[in-house]
């Protein structure tokens, strides 16, 4: 099934996925759930994609790890892996911070984009990673998302983006803000060409990412319990001088207020996305 991906002499490189996957099983010590406080064996967490076996809490996960269980085995082909961050403000300490993060996370930026398939349906994927500067969108992330939309349009494939972000990246200043316009415009253009865009929100999706590409899906989905909003809860509380109710800005709350189609538990992503892709197969490119 991978003949298609390799036909132009490009071999799929599944190494980052394998590494991310194996990384999760090397630690065998029991993990304590931050939500329910109960400990469960690490392999139990891993089996469910880092969802607490006791209470169903969805722990944040990295982009490569997510793709490792989301995509059909062997279908992953990373795009723009060599697209590196830039430092347009010459912001003090930023290059050092980036290289430290590269060391500690093994990622060069907060987004991974790839060609891949789910249940045999090909699509272009982009996944943000909250372990890298809170998944914030600077020029490199904006460029990756934009190119993902352009690739999807060129190849007439659906576009699936998993958001996880604190918003625009402060260290890159105004150009980070401009990535909102750039990505929103690219999505708009892709959708005008009848492209299917499925936006999948994970914890947390806030700020400039919520206010751009992440809110523009033809289909809007979220993981359970994900915090989704424009302003963060702390800023709102400081502004209105009152405590926010429990569950405010959580996925279930957004579902109730009409901003999501469905809340999808992590273990169901493959089947739900597979179903949507299949329903859009004919005519919906």
């Amino acid at each position: 099934m991978n003949l298609f991906f390799t036909r132009r002499g490009k071999k799929e490189n599944t190494e980052p996925l394998k590494a991310a996957w194996e990384d999760q099983i090397t630690s065998q010590s029991p993990k304590t759930c931050p939500a329910c406080g109960q400990a469960s064996p690490a392999d139990q967490w891993h089996k469910r994609g880092q969802v607490c076996p006791k209470c169903g809490y969805h722990a944040p996960i990295g982009a490569y790890y997510r793709l490792s269980f989301l995509l059909d085995p062997g279908s992953f082909q990373e795009l723009d892996r060599d697209l590196l961050p830039a430092d347009p403000l010459d912001f003090p300490g930023y290059p050092q911070k980036l290289s430290d993060l590269e060391q500690s996370t093994g990622m060069m930026e907060a987004a991974v984009s790839a060609l891949g398939s789910i249940e045999g349906h090909r699509a272009v994927f982009a996944v943000l990673d909250s372990s890298f500067l809170m998944g914030s969108m600077g020029t490199a992330v904006g460029e990756k998302i934009t190119r993902a939309a352009e690739t999807a349009q060129r190849q007439r494939l659906p576009l699936i983006i998993f958001a996880a972000s604190g918003g625009a990246r402060m260290q890159e200043g105004i150009l980070s803000l401009m990535q909102m316009a750039k990505t929103a415009a690219a999505i708009q253009r892709f959708q005008s060409a009848r492209g299917l865009y499925i936006s999948c929100l994970t914890h947390p999706t806030t700020g400039g990412v919520t206010a751009s590409f992440a809110s523009l899906g033809d289909v809007m989905l979220s993981e359970p319990g994900a915090l989704i909003g424009f302003a963060g809860p702390r800023v709102i509380e400081q502004t209105i001088h009152e405590k926010l109710p429990a569950g405010f800005q959580r996925a279930e709350y957004l579902l109730e207020h009409g901003f999501l189609d469905q809340v999808v538990p992590r273990e169901q992503w493959r089947s739900v996305l597979g179903q949507i892709l299949s329903l859009h197969e004919k005519g919906g490119r």
Binding site: M180, A181, A184, A185, I187, Q188, T210, A211, S212, F213, A214, S215, L216, I228, G229, F230, A231, V235, I236, T239, I240, E242, L244, F248, Q249, H257, F259
Partner: peptide, 21 residues
Amino acid sequence: AYPGRDAEERGQGEAIAQCLA
């Protein structure tokens, strides 16, 4: 944009995103 409870409830992020698009 106003960081308020009502604003969030009625989709501040979505409204801005749609403006951009």
